[in-house]
Nucleic acid binder design. Structure first.
Lengths: 302, 302
DNA sequence: ATAATAGTGTCTTTGAGACAATATGTT
DNA sequence: AACATATTGTCTCAAAGACACTATTAT
């Protein structure tokens, strides 16, 4: 990359320009990262031989200061001047989970002017997926309380209105986050506008109980992304331990998609993505199931 | 949302806290938006009865000042304190195209520490799609030169290396942007790492000629997103004029996907998404083709 | 008449859904 | 033996790919 010799209209070379550049000439917002750390966990054990159900969980921290004091929020923090966004995300992840090498993906950047009452804050959200065995490793040295909340994202209702050149579809979802006795809820409205050939989507919090900032909205967005991506990528395996049965894998798909799948078709679909081992999950009160591992040779659309 | 009464450890109510909040306590980066404005245009007319080929184009502006003076960059600018990210993107769009109601989607936020030599700049990129009829409406009052560059994204080569618990796949792409006599090129390396069950992707500029900042990388990322999304959403129609023939629609898919499609299958696939009109495209030296329009009632996975 | 595209019919292949049938350790 | 799940086989249906065939204009 050569960009040295020429001068600008003020007759400055690039070096002169950069030396004279006044960093403070524009007002700048604060920038933070928010972490959506998901895992799939077993729910309480049932009667003696049934399989335990799975649930999708997200890590939240209790706010110890204003604003939204006492409410629950996504873990996160400010991006320092000398670290990239992704480095900041990884740093937050380490602080919260002590786990290092896990799936991390940038989700979206939230930039509404008044999303934080303190000052202008622009926040980039990252989604991390950790496998259920890591679930115990909660919260590092951080003073804040951190807990796993069980997620339920319930479709409530939908309206569709005609407009001159298209339509507006509004969908309401109820997000319910639960940890022991604590239950957080929020209602989110997703608006899809078709005008001419142009489709737009907009997300908005109708009501939030004990969920800080716009985080209910962010969580609901992440859930939708997760549901989409699990269908055409291999992220599901990031939620699995090293060895797993195909039924466990299927349960993970089911809890994320929110619907039941047929075992036969499911097994056909994942057949290429897993490698059979010769170990078995035993002592379960029924036929033992074979353990599989992820097949790293598998490549989507290779 | 109630968050009023309680006090924090310093005994402040929320109101007291907010009044005392020192905005300047953290160093803050600059935040910008970068616009990826795409359109599909006819290439020069061929011999008397052949169809004209289509090409994918992107709008770039020539830099009039350091850094990267004289090179070409994505249009964009700083986000002001009183506008949201999306508002900033729309404002930039208006400045560059004078078009208002077009497809706009947030793509990704780029946060490497040294991506701008002036100061720490975090940039959120937005992708806009404009229909070919709007192509003439280039560059508003902005002093900068703005031009449409024809895009070619060529796969160069690929290497795959085994690691203890997975593999590393590197793909090289050559991005070539052309406007009349001006030709910009860049080589981008996309690295896909499989380690255990975790897959990561990383993008990096190997070499860039006359493309400013990390913008070659951003463009290549946008192209990949565009290729993906055209397969499972209706964004293609945002690139079409009000009325279009099915062959034109197919050409748009082909130029974005970079491969030829079979007409019969293509027509079946889009059949539900379009509405037949009774107008025809004539005087073409061959059988006239029927004009269609987008069917706004169509809903993916309704 | 001919070039060149528009548009349809149909055979094959592939993959998903449905569901029946078989297999097997634990209590 | 009975339970509860594991695993496979097969029929059906829908969508995609391949390709041949028919239709229609301007020159």
């Amino acid at each position: 990359m050569n960009h040295s010799s020429p001068e600008n209209k003020q007759g400055q070379t690039e070096q002169q320009f950069l030396e004279a550049y006044d960093v403070s000439q524009f007002e700048r917002p604060s920038v933070t990262v928010d972490m959506l750390i998901f895992t799939v966990a077993d729910e309480e054990e049932q009667n003696y031989r049934k399989l335990s159900a799975k649930s999708l969980n997200i890590l939240l921290v209790k706010r110890g200061d204003h604003p939204f004091i006492g409410q629950w929020a996504l873990p996160g923090g400010f991006v320092s001047p000398n670290e990239s966004l992704e480095e900041a995300a990884k740093r937050e992840l380490r602080t919260e989970t002590n786990i290092d090498n896990i799936y991390l993906e940038q989700l979206y950047t939230w930039g509404e002017v008044d999303r934080d009452p303190r000052t202008r804050v622009i926040s980039t959200s990252y989604m991390a997926l950790v496998n259920s065995e890591a679930l115990e490793v909660v919260a590092g040295d951080d003073a804040a309380e951190a807990e796993w909340f069980q997620i339920e994202d319930k479709w409530l209702r939908e309206t569709k209105t005609a407009t001159p050149d298209g339509s507006i579809t509004e969908k309401w979802f109820e997000l319910r986050l639960q940890h022991e006795e604590v239950e957080l809820t929020a209602t989110i409205k997703v608006t899809k506008t078709v005008a001419g050939r142009i489709i737009r989507e907009h997300r908005e919090i109708v009501e939030a109980n004990q969920i800080a900032f716009d985080h209910a909205q962010i969580i609901q967005y992440a859930l939708e992304r997760l549901r989409n991506k699990i269908e055409y990528t291999d992220i599901a395996f990031a939620l699995m331990p090293e060895l797993f049965t195909l039924t466990e894998l299927q349960q993970v798909y089911e809890v994320i998609l929110g619907k039941e799948l047929l075992a036969a078709a499911f097994r056909r679909k994942v057949a290429d993505k897993v490698i059979e081992t010769n170990q078995f999950r035993k002592h379960a009160g029924h036929r033992p199931s074979k353990y599989f591992r992820f097949n790293p040779e598998w490549m989507d659309q290779a």
